[in-house]
Design a protein around this nucleic acid. Structure first.
Length: 223
DNA sequence: CTCCGGCGAG
DNA sequence: CTCGCTGGAG
């Protein structure tokens, strides 16, 4: 897909409008390992359930490779139950903790400090870490962030005709990485997620009150 | 492609 | 009660 100057202006105008309408907290004093674990918990899971599971896990364990590597599997399952898919997630969390503890001296930054594409590939080799999770960790824990594509981002990019309907993960990721500078990516990502949750929802989107309805070229969504 | 799953909105 | 939410692995 070819992008004209006008397309870029429209993209920038939309992002600017969304930033004014959706406040986000960029706080988070999470360690990279905590980001990794909470992102694994968040897979296929809404935010409330993810937060509940992470807090419960944090009550029982220090969220460190050392502590989780030797944790009892059933105990992890019990803690993270609210996130769903807990059998698979518990196994993956402990396995990831063991790999980081044994192969990286318990220091995830040994992966994150590598050049971006190497770091991404190392993350992808961990159990339970796919493209979205790897990109979230890179985006939130380094300055050379990639752009994570979750279902909100996927849906919004297609509704706004930024990418074609059949575009896959990597195509959408590259679109955003082309359009958004590295230091803006985290913020733009969070703003789009908020927009996707509050307004441009999967079901019953609030098109009538959408702040960017003038710039939306999708006529088939509004009820 | 299917399976894994608690949770809350409808 | 049903069902959509929402990624990775086999």
């Amino acid at each position: 897909m070819i992008w004209s100057h006008a397309d870029r202006l429209r993209f920038d105008r939309i992002i600017e409008t969304l930033e004014k309408n959706f406040s986000i907290e960029m706080g988070s004093s999470y360690t990279p390992f905590e980001v990794l674990i909470s992102t694994i918990l968040s897979q296929n899971t809404n935010r409330d359930n993810t937060t509940k599971a992470f807090e419960r896990l944090k009550e029982q364990f220090k969220i460190t490779p050392q502590e989780l590597a030797s944790a009892d599997l059933e105990e992890i399952k019990r803690c993270i139950k609210p996130a769903g898919l807990y059998n698979a997630k518990a196994r993956r969390i402990r396995k990831v903790a063991r790999i980081i503890w044994e192969q990286y001296d318990g220091d995830l930054s040994k992966i994150l400090n590598l050049p971006t594409s190497e770091a991404r590939n190392m993350l992808l080799s961990l159990p339970g870490v796919g493209r979205k999770t790897a990109d979230v960790v890179l985006s939130f824990c380094t300055n050379k962030g990639t752009f994570p594509v979750d279902t909100h981002i996927n849906r919004i990019a297609k509704r706004l005709r930024w990418v074609e309907e059949k575009a896959g993960y990597e195509e959408i990721r590259h679109f955003f990485e082309d359009m958004v500078s590295e230091k803006q990516r985290k913020k733009v990502h969070l703003v789009l997620i908020e927009f996707g949750r509050k307004v441009c929802r999967a079901k019953n989107p609030h098109c009538k009150t959408c702040p960017i309805r003038e710039d939306c070229q999708n006529e088939n969504i509004c009820q």
